[in-house]
């Protein structure tokens, strides 16, 4: 059978069932779009979690009458503690400057004196940013008599540690649900569309069409619907992502947009969804010949 015959038949099928072709293309678009949105949310939530973890630092507050000349020897000593990456001394004056930057007020005007203690800002290597390990570092730091108190974002870390496993589980579950829902939805829509052509299929069988001849235009239809649906999904997703990129990217958080490879994969996924949806749906009409 010549390819021109298949394309002519395909065009006839599309022309005679415009609304069902449109609805199954839209269903494929929604399925691919859902997957794209899911991946974007997933990538950015993982990125946000990493950002929160990256920002974890230890503030070691020193006694009020700390002798600044001892600062550099103390820094060298703290650096020997396992997991410590950098140590920075913040004097009372620098602390007052940071306060002024954060709150827009001069601390001396609020209290008449500077109550802010000098401190060390200690950053850790990534693998040490867990509550267990930070507590160990904290224990080591408190052995220094010049260090008065220690603080770090313990609450944030606790939330992260408590939820990271369930977040991974939730992510995988959502991925499975979206994938299966997409396959189910698309295959049913295509099945309905092909059911509408039942009489054509029956007649084709009776006048001597081979299975291949009957099947091919439907598979081509599924292929083009999948392709068109997923291209539409990619365009809509790009528009959304551009909006979110402008709205949510700031100095602290750089909103990630999914890359070209993933967009191509989305088109491949949608096209396969349409094609195989048709392959499986037409099968049941050709079972008995």
């Amino acid at each position: 059978m010549s390819p021109s015959y298949y394309f002519k038949e395909l065009w006839r099928y599309i022309k005679s069932a415009k609304s069902s072709v449109f609805s199954s293309t839209v269903v494929i678009m929604i399925a691919v779009l859902l997957l794209g949105i899911y991946v974007t949310i997933s990538i950015n939530s993982i990125k946000l979690m990493k950002l929160i973890r990256d920002k974890v630092e230890i503030d070691a507050y020193l006694i009020d009458n700390f002798d600044e000349t001892k600062a550099s020897s103390l820094i060298n000593s703290i650096k020997t503690i396992g997991g410590v990456k950098t140590v920075k001394y913040i004097s009372k004056n620098e602390a007052a400057k940071i306060f002024a930057e954060d709150f827009g007020e001069d601390i001396l005007e609020v209290f008449d004196y500077n109550p802010l203690p000098p401190s060390f800002k200690i950053s850790l290597y990534d693998e040490y940013k867990t509550i267990d390990r930070i507590e160990k570092v904290k224990g080591e730091l408190l052995k220094y008599k010049d260090i008065n108190d220690i603080s770090y974002a313990q609450k944030n870390l606790e939330i992260l540690e408590r939820n990271s496993n369930s977040l991974v589980f939730l992510n995988l579950s959502l991925l499975l649900i979206i994938t299966f829902a997409s396959i189910f939805l698309v295959s049913n829509t295509i099945k309905l569309m092909i059911s509408a052509k039942k009489n054509t299929i029956e007649l084709m069988k009776l006048i001597g069409a081979s299975k291949e001849t009957i099947r091919t235009p439907f598979i081509l239809e599924g292929f083009f619907q999948g392709f068109a649906g997923s291209i539409l999904a990619v365009i809509i997703l790009q528009l959304f992502l551009n909006y979110f990129y402008t709205a949510y990217t700031n100095n602290d958080f750089n909103f990630s947009i999914i890359d070209t490879t993933f967009l191509i994969l989305m088109v491949v996924f949608g096209t396969l969804l349409g094609t195989f949806g048709s392959v499986f749906s037409i099968r049941r009409f050709l079972r008995f010949y």
């Binding site: 006839r12 005679s16 009489n199 069988k205 069409a209």
Partner: peptide
């Protein structure tokens, strides 16, 4: 089977003409 059916002409009560052509 398709080869056999090409040797038989079938006429039906309800005509079974395809409305898309």
């Amino acid at each position: 089977i398709p080869l056999l059916r090409r040797k038989i002409g079938f006429v039906f009560q309800d005509f079974k003409l395809l409305n898309d052509r």
